[in-house]
Computed example of a mutant assay.
Amino acid sequence: MAKKQEAQLNSCLMELNLTTARKQYTELAEQAESESLSYSDFLLSVLEAECQTRRIRRIDRRLRESRLPLEKNLETFELKRLPQKVNRQIKTLLQGDFINHNENVLIFGNPGSGKTHLICALGQELIRQDKRIYFSTCALLLQELLLAKKDLRLPRLLKKFSRFDAIIIDDIGYVQQEKEEMEVLFTLLAERYEQGSVMITSNLPFSKWERIFKDPMMTAAAVDRIVHHSVILELNIASYRINTAKNRKLKEES
């Protein structure tokens, strides 16, 4: 390729912000020539390389913005511990269709059953399917919502959350909250209703959610909105942490 032509090509690729294409087009051009590829095949290979790089960067960016603990992923989760029904549900959820229909996911189980790990793993897989996910413990989310309300920024924060395909709220009911805090949580749930998915973990069954929302009417309204379009997973299994501790102790004693 003539130097003038190469300079023009570089300039065009820079202007279009095609960084990967600019780095790889020479190598890909040589490969196309050696394999006698058509012009369209060569162009396709250049654009595929650019798209792949952008996709990787986009996923990395979305993983960071999600605030998900990345160590809690499917590779480190023992799916064999779960009942067959739950494994079937997980397989379906991993397809991501529930997000397309603005459905919710509720995971119930005792402390140590793996609720948080599982929901974080699901969140990461959804991000790899090009979804935007936001993760927070219930306690931290309530602080964020309440502070926004006091600063008259709640509508702006809710608008920010509306850009996410799913909001993960971990450990609803684990810590008792004030009524004002639960009111802002209800506001978020009402905003998300049929507009975006909510993914929730809790160790409290619905029959005890009045402890969370403090008010029977608000409890009924919250449960109604969450359950209306939802998939419910029940992790009726022993605590992973307790089992791990027992196994460690047995090894030490043997």
Rank of each mutant, 00 (worst) to 15 (best):
Q8C: 13
L9Y: 04
L13F: 03
M14Q: 15
L16C: 08
N17Q: 15
T20E: 14
K23V: 02
Y25L: 10
T26L: 15
E27H: 11
E27P: 01
E33K: 15
F42N: 05
L43S: 12
V46F: 02
L47Y: 11
D60M: 03
R61K: 11
R61A: 14
R62F: 02
L68C: 02
K72E: 07
K85V: 15
V86M: 02
Q95T: 14
N100E: 12
V105I: 14
L106C: 08
I107N: 08
K115W: 10
L122W: 07
L122I: 02
L122K: 04
D130L: 05
K131D: 00
K131G: 01
I133W: 04
E144W: 03
L146G: 09
K150N: 07
L152F: 15
L154V: 10
L157T: 06
S162T: 01
S162Y: 04
F164W: 05
A166P: 06
D170T: 00
I172M: 01
Q177N: 02
E178I: 10
E178N: 12
E180W: 01
E180C: 06
M182P: 02
F186Q: 06
F186A: 00
R192F: 00
Y193W: 01
F206A: 03
K208F: 08
W209I: 05
D215V: 09
D215P: 11
I226Q: 08
H228K: 09
V231Y: 15
I232L: 12
L233G: 05
N236P: 07
K249D: 11
